[in-house]
Design a protein around this nucleic acid. Structure first.
Lengths: 157, 157
DNA sequence: ATACTTGCAAATGATTTGCCAGTGT
DNA sequence: ACACTGGCAAATCATTTGCAAGTAT
């Protein structure tokens, strides 16, 4: 009944596994690619392409935005990276770390929460019962208010 | 427990009610505004601003895209119109018809399904149990596969 | 008559594409 | 060496903003 999102290649979890897979797929492991990967590992969560290009506040060397987008796309084709649409604003990219994570976004504070696959299966079942749709929350997340903002809204009435 | 989305002004359901409310709010009922409203009534479902500007395939007079956006914004402030983000591509605008509808979008065929408020309350409860988030599906809809596309995907494996 | 509105042009923000010089294998 | 890749400029798409001319009240 429960239809979980596809599993991602479970071995694409470390830096070297990813670069090996890139080479296997016929890609080169360029300096720019290494920087993008390093940025994703350092960020350890969804980041915008522009943040990576800007050097993640000095934590990695800055590079051209175009190169960031191109390398992120290669990494997505490979299955090592996914991107989420967190409302308005740019898309956010993150390492898949072997699983198809699903996301929730707070419309008030902008917080992005990621959950492991399966945690939203009960929700998925309810959507299917109510509408027949098979919902996915990996690419277009659940939008709403995070616990804190929801409580604040209730308090402020 | 169940937190339904806010109700929209329930009287903003007919053409004249809306134009009256516009005038009450200090706006003028210009030709462009009348065309936008007419387009929304004719479309009777979510449409892109560009479709309205193009004249809805000859069903209304074409007008400048800027005017469409500006009038849609006025109608949104008034509470007569809402817009949904149906995946990639432009935002879709629709008359609220007095209620805060919620939406589901098929990632495969692009279909947009709207449901009455309350129909997704069970889903909302489950999201809250699982994550603490209070979900809203009126502005950023549920994404996934519609019943037909889901069945096709299961069949094709 | 006086503001609000229009339409056109231009700006904005996110992302993509073309092209040529640079570089990984 | 050769093909893939990087950086820069320019294009694209959705949407917004500036401004002079037009129009609803």
């Amino acid at each position: 009944m429960t239809q979980a999102p596809d599993r991602l290649p479970r071995d694409l979890v470390g830096f070297d596994e990813i670069t090996d897979a890139l080479r296997d797929a016929g890609h080169r492991v360029s300096t720019a690619m290494r920087i993008v990967l390093e940025a994703l590992f350092i960020a350890d969560g969804p980041v915008a392409a522009a943040q990576i290009a800007a050097g993640l506040d000095g934590r990695v060397p800055p590079l051209d935005l175009t190169s960031v987008y191109r390398n992120l796309e290669r990494l997505q084709e490979l299955g090592a990276v996914t991107h989420v649409h967190a409302g308005h604003g740019p898309g956010l990219y993150a390492l898949g770390r072997g699983v198809a994570r699903e996301y929730l976004v707070c419309e008030q504070c902008g917080r992005v929460t990621d959950v492991d696959p399966g945690e939203l299966d009960g929700v998925r079942d309810r959507v299917r019962e109510a509408t027949g749709y098979v919902a996915r929350f990996d690419h277009f997340p659940v939008h709403g208010y995070c616990p804190e903002c929801a409580a604040r809204r209730e308090r402020d009435n």
